[in-house]
Nucleic acid binder design. Structure first.
Length: 578
DNA sequence: GCCGTTTTCGGCCCGACTGTTTTCAGTCG
């Protein structure tokens, strides 16, 4: 049997089709259709191969018509797309890579290929060094220099993903915002883009500044000490590269356009395009300066105004991915997203008994300071020897210690828990006799990541059938930009969780954020609770909760979908159920 | 290539900056 085709593979094929068609000079709307379809497919919560198997009509999906539905079916059945093979045959592979160089797009790459026969980075560099490119019509010496610079920069890159984790981007954005706020004539500074949408990784920073006419913001921006290169600098817009390689755009916006600009630059692109399209239907033009009827600005001061003009209620930035939020807004059925204030406790933390830094009491005191009603101590089990994982005996002692501490204070409930290892055969690393004495058993995988999808899924399903199993921690095992998720059938696991009353963890460590937003939504739709947990290894780590909440909001979760928004009383009741 | 209570043809989001021009195309977001 053929390996099932992932949604991302289909999206890759469509994106490559779009790239190649663009170089070929195809109709730009046709190109756009492929890109739209790629986006639709990659953000689909369920496997499109499964949909085909179940005979679902793919042309029901947005941006996918009869033709592309047929192509998807073909990819799933044959593993490839003949039209793509044809295009690849006609064009050298490296042409696509050339279009990714800054300043070079499909049009210029096409000219360079047809007139100079340039089909690789090496040939491009040679042509630029020999001043061949500046002799071409439409190209000049400045363009030639920029091409060489772009090749140089590319060579310095490691080839890894340049998107930075949200938490890392935060570390760059916050000081820069503070710096800009001190500029003359600046009223407010906001970071828009994927940063504001709380995407798990951020490719660049889009900063908006509401300024008076004589503001010094742009001049000050390009002088920021962390700026390595100024890419462009105009009256209302400037782009720089920071020393870290992060690109930052600053746009200066008048107050009257604040809402329209914030909406436009927050994106996502798919969301704003969809909103504009609704605008067009209503005879409105929407751009970053406002909503216009003819030449008259009819909205733009706030985002709420912009949405209202197109007949929608306000949509939270985290939802703006064009994954159904616009339809939900039309029906006034948007979720009321969970907030940090809704969180009443943390259900996955470590202490210095294993790999944590702080004592149970210190962790509990810190939880009290955060206003929590409870905190679960869930140290590692013995299989993780490197962390001094607990065996039955040491866990029994910890249970007694927690009982003592709970008697001492009424400020917080300390839950007795464990992060028990799921062994290769799906059994748990500790005996039922000791698990039974705990309030909370959190199970997770820490070894044998590369089993086949069937085996890995079976392993987890088997572990979940243990009667004391309550939460599946970091369900995919991925580390953002570092480790791929292990192969599992998440839909099957979520359905099993529903049957057994098990919750899935959304691990809030900024490098994990595991569940993804898409699976959070799937859990919600199937009716499975999500526990947002920090997996804290120190008191300070309890702070990670906000990253988890961001991700949960991206996954449409409301307070009622999140286990640790329950009061201590409610939670104990839920955990007592078997 | 998609899409449709103004439609099955003719639209398809919109503007800034740059470099090469001398009014604009290409690129980018």
């Amino acid at each position: 049997m053929r390996v099932p085709v992932h949604n991302s593979e289909i999206a890759d094929i469509f994106n490559e089709m779009a790239d190649l068609l663009e170089i070929e000079g195809a109709n730009e709307f046709r190109v756009r259709a492929y890109r739209n379809a790629a986006r639709t497919v990659s953000s689909l919560p369920q496997s499109i191969a499964d949909m085909v198997k179940q005979g679902e009509d793919l042309s029901e999906l947005p941006g996918i018509g009869k033709d592309l539905a047929g192509k998807i079916t073909q990819i799933i059945k044959k593993g490839e797309l003949p039209q793509l093979e044809d295009l690849r045959h006609d064009m050298p592979e490296e042409l696509i890579e050339l279009t990714h160089l800054a300043g070079l797009g499909p049009k210029r790459v096409k000219v360079l290929y047809q007139d100079l026969g340039i089909a690789s980075l090496k040939q491009l560099r040679e042509a630029a060094e020999n001043k061949k490119i500046s002799q071409m019509p439409g190209f000049g010496s400045r363009t030639e220099e920029k091409i060489l610079e772009a090749i140089e920069r590319r060579g310095a890159e490691t080839g890894e993903s340049k998107r930075l984790k949200l938490s890392v981007a935060e570390g760059m954005a916050l000081p820069l915002v503070k710096y800009l706020q001190k500029s003359k004539g600046v009223k407010t500074v906001d970071v828009a883009g994927s940063y504001r949408r709380k995407l798990e990784t951020v490719g660049d920073l889009d900063i908006l500044a509401i300024c008076e006419k004589d503001s010094s913001a742009i001049d000050r921006f390009v002088k920021y000490e962390d700026v390595a290169e100024v890419v462009s600098k105009g009256k209302t817009r400037s782009t720089v590269i920071l020393r870290s390689g992060m690109q930052v755009d600053l746009r200066v916006i008048p107050q009257v356009s604040y809402g329209a600009a914030l909406h436009y630059f927050t994106g996502s692109k798919a969301h704003t395009i969809a909103i504009r399209r609704i605008g067009v239907e209503k005879g409105l033009k929407i751009n970053e300066y406002g909503v216009f009827k003819g030449k008259k600005r009819v909205a733009g001061r706030t985002e709420k105004e912009v949405y209202k003009k197109v007949g929608l209620v306000y949509i939270e930035p985290e939802l703006r991915e064009n994954r159904g939020e616009i339809e939900a807004a039309q029906k006034k059925r948007l979720p009321e997203l969970v907030t940090l204030e809704d969180i009443k406790g943390d259900l996955h933390t470590h202490t210095n008994a294993t790999e944590g830094h702080d004592s149970i009491e210190e962790m509990a005191n810190s939880a009290v300071e955060r206003g929590y009603q409870y905190i679960a101590v869930t140290d590692h089990s013995k299989h993780l020897a490197i962390t001094k994982g607990l065996d039955e005996k040491r866990l029994a002692r910890q249970i007694e210690e927690i009982d003592r501490l709970n008697k001492k204070t009424e400020k917080i409930v300390i839950l007795k828990g464990i992060e028990v290892d799921i062994l290769e055969d799906g059994s748990l690393d500790l005996s039922d006799a000791i698990l039974k004495r705990l309030d909370l058993v959190v199970g997770s995988i820490h070894h044998k990541f590369n089993l086949s999808q069937d085996k890995q899924t079976d392993r987890i399903l088997r572990a979940m059938s243990n009667p004391y199993f309550k939460i599946l921690a970091h369900p995919s095992g991925r580390l953002i930009n570092e480790r791929e998720p292990y192969e599992i059938d998440m839909q099957q696991i979520i359905k099993a969780a529903k049957d057994k009353g098990i919750a899935l963890e959304l691990n809030a460590q900024p490098e994990r954020l595991d569940l993804t937003d898409i699976y959070c939504k799937m859990a919600k739709d199937i009716g499975v609770m999500v526990a947002i947990s920090t997996d804290a290894h120190s008191r300070g780590n309890l702070e990670f909760m906000r990253y988890g909440v961001y991700q949960a909001r991206k996954g449409w979760l409301e307070a009622r979908d999140v286990l640790n928004t329950k009061t201590a009383r409610e939670l104990k009741k839920i955990l007592a159920r078997n």
